[in-house]
């Protein structure tokens, strides 16, 4: 049984880069606080929030969740392969990072279709406070996806183990934020 774990460097034995853990906690705190504010605002108009949410494509967002966790799976496999450090492993790392990037692109494509549909129906930032949060939070998350894809692409050039691990950590953070954002915005 092989594990993608590195407990060499950080206080408390945290795997990977410590600064990435600081970033993960910060991002979870920011998105978590915003989502709780969203739910507090929902108390003043539950009907309006429910009707607004019904305009979204839940199934498409569910598929996108599966796309993103699959991309995270590829990144986790890449980080594990990078630890072996062999020439063959480096080729595998590049392929796996390419798969992660392509799946990130699929996620953005589906989001783009969703955004275009919402815009066509006039569901902009000011349509309802639900959509103000919807656009701000999902666009902010999408910006992280774009940043993650760029980082994965840069790291794949040399495929150095530490860099691959740090980039995979960033990508998993993007996953993590989405799995708490998705149910609150799309499903509840």
């Amino acid at each position: 049984m092989t594990e993608a774990v590195d407990i060499r460097r950080n206080p408390g034995g945290l795997p990977g880069e410590l600064i990435m853990w600081v970033l993960i906690v910060s991002e979870l705190a920011v998105f978590g606080a915003a989502l709780l504010i969203f739910l507090v605002l929902r108390l003043s108009d539950p009907q309006g929030f429910a009707e607004s949410q019904a305009q979204l494509h839940r199934l498409s967002a569910g598929i996108n969740t599966m796309v993103l966790v699959s991309s995270g799976f590829a990144a986790a496999l890449a980080a594990r392969a990078a630890e072996t450090g062999t020439a063959g492993a480096r080729r595998a790392v590049r392929w796996l990072l390419a798969v992660a990037i392509v799946l990130g692109g699929v996620f953005l494509l589906l989001k783009g279709i969703e955004y275009a549909d919402a815009a066509r129906r006039g569901l902009g930032l000011e349509a309802h406070v639900f959509f103000t949060f919807y656009w701000l939070l999902t666009l902010f998350h999408a910006a992280h996806v774009v940043a993650g894809m760029v980082i994965l692409a840069i790291v794949s050039i040399r495929a150095h183990a530490d860099a691959v691990e740090a980039s995979a950590q960033f990508w998993h953070m993007v996953d993590l934020v989405w799995v708490i954002l998705f149910p609150v915005i799309y499903l509840l």
């Binding site: 034995g13 795997p15 966790v69 799995v179």
Partner: peptide, 16 residues
């Protein structure tokens, strides 16, 4: 549960 799985397995917290 999904968040825990990502943290424990993708990010390696299962051993911390």
């Amino acid at each position: 549960l999904k968040a825990r799985i990502i943290l424990n397995r993708y990010l390696g917290l299962a051993f911390v």
